[in-house]
């Protein structure tokens, strides 16, 4: 549904997106993770047709966004980072305008309106002017306009920002329900959201795609660089030497924490390394704790971003 092939974006001499390639299929929800300024919004804007790629090819529902932008637009529902709302219009007038602009047939405008209002729980505010709405409702009105016209592709730029926990839950349900029949690409800062909703995660930093895989796939990939952390009271140099002599330990980082040393060992991905570390350390110095860090999505994200 969404395909990016070696896409780059330049503003003047500055390249903000470098050689980005990935695709999102129908029935798939892909989370787009990256720190601020990493290129998430620019990428979504290129897919939505707001800006064009400087190089490479973006296609949506089979249409090339460089040449068939207008045709492709009717297959895209897009919620930008700041919900694009006309403050002085009421919710009904706004959604009706978007429905008509999306080419929804006159006879279907009412039913389409009812559908998105129900999906985004906007019944209570349908007649209210948009400037009177809370941030959460504004976000939902923005989401509702994206859903109008039953687009095949949904692009959501930080759709859950500013929502309270109850609204967050609802918004996730909405996105999840649309993920069954649409191709959904949404950017977020909230890592737990990605594990809850997405089939795949794309991690981007400095305009480069660092990884794209399922949350569990990313976890497995990073298990190869597993870490063991331990707390020991010992002389730094001797401890470091001892640990590096253990078979399977790749590197050691030591940080003093009062009497205790906080040690992080990068180990090879095989069983028994932790036990070997314990056998090497425990007889000589007091070992306060020893544990293997399972990579959480947060660790994975931070590691990719710091490496990238």
């Amino acid at each position: 549904m969404i395909t990016l092939e070696s896409v780059s974006k330049r503003y003047g001499s500055q390249t903000v997106i470098h050689d980005l390639s990935f695709s999102v299929e129908k029935g798939e929800i892909v989370g787009f993770l990256g720190p601020n300024g990493s290129g998430k919004t620019t990428t979504l804007r290129m897919i939505a047709g707001y800006t064009t790629a400087s190089a490479g090819r973006v296609s949506v529902a089979g249409y090339d966004m460089a040449t068939q932008n207008d045709t492709a637009a009717s297959h895209i529902g897009y919620l930008p980072e700041h919900p694009p709302l006309y403050d002085t219009l009421d919710v009904t007038a706004y959604l009706r305008f978007v429905a008509k602009a999306k080419g929804v047939a006159r006879s279907e405008v009412a039913s389409e309106f009812d559908r998105v209002v129900a999906a985004c729980r906007l019944e209570d505010v349908a007649r209210r002017e948009i400037y009177k709405l809370s941030k959460g409702y504004r976000q939902r009105v923005g989401l509702a306009q994206a859903l109008l016209g039953k687009p095949q592709v949904l692009l959501l730029d930080e759709p859950t920002i500013g929502l309270d926990p109850g609204q967050l839950h609802e918004a996730r349900d909405i996105i999840r329900s649309f993920g069954a029949e649409h191709a959904v690409l949404f950017s977020t800062h909230i890592l737990s959201e990605v594990t809850m909703i997405c089939k795949r995660v794309a991690i981007i930093n400095n305009g480069r795609l660092l990884a794209i895989d399922s949350p569990s796939g990313l976890q497995q990939a990073l298990e190869q660089t597993n870490r063991v952390s331990l707390q020991v009271t010992a002389p730094v140099d001797e401890l470091r030497q001892e640990l590096l002599s253990v078979d399977g330990v790749r590197s050691v980082e030591v940080e003093a924490d009062g009497d205790r040393l906080q040690v992080e060992c990068q180990i090879e991905p095989r069983d028994g390394v932790e036990a070997a570390i314990a056998r090497a350390v425990a007889p000589r110095w007091p070992l306060h704790s020893l544990g293997r860090q399972e990579p959480t999505l947060e660790n994975i994200f931070l590691q990719y971003v710091s490496e990238g």
Binding site: D70, A73, H82, Y86
Partner: peptide, 13 residues
Amino acid sequence: GRTMELLATLPLR
């Protein structure tokens, strides 16, 4: 009002 992004991405020429 940042609504240009909406107008430009709706199926409007």
